[in-house]
């Protein structure tokens, strides 16, 4: 699954570490999700959507 996390993060000038802190996960985990190595669970996807004030579909989409 692809995602727009990098773009959304860049728009807010957040580093991976900043996003990791807001999500309460490690920076490595943010990197794994951002690069599509790991698909987050629904609760984490909702958390991301809430954080970026958008919908899950606007962040994650099929290949």
């Amino acid at each position: 699954m692809k995602n727009r996390l990098k773009v959304l993060r860049a728009e807010r000038n957040w580093s991976q570490a900043d996003l990791a802190q807001k999500l309460e996960v490690s920076r490595q985990s943010v990197n794994a999700i951002e690069t599509g190595k790991f698909d987050p669970s629904l609760p984490l996807a909702f958390k991301l959507a809430k954080l970026f004030e958008t919908t899950i579909e606007a962040i994650f989409f099929e290949d």
Partner: peptide, 8 residues
């Protein structure tokens, strides 16, 4: 740990 990527 509460970090689901690390758990996986």
């Amino acid at each position: 740990d509460r970090d689901e990527v690390q758990i996986a």
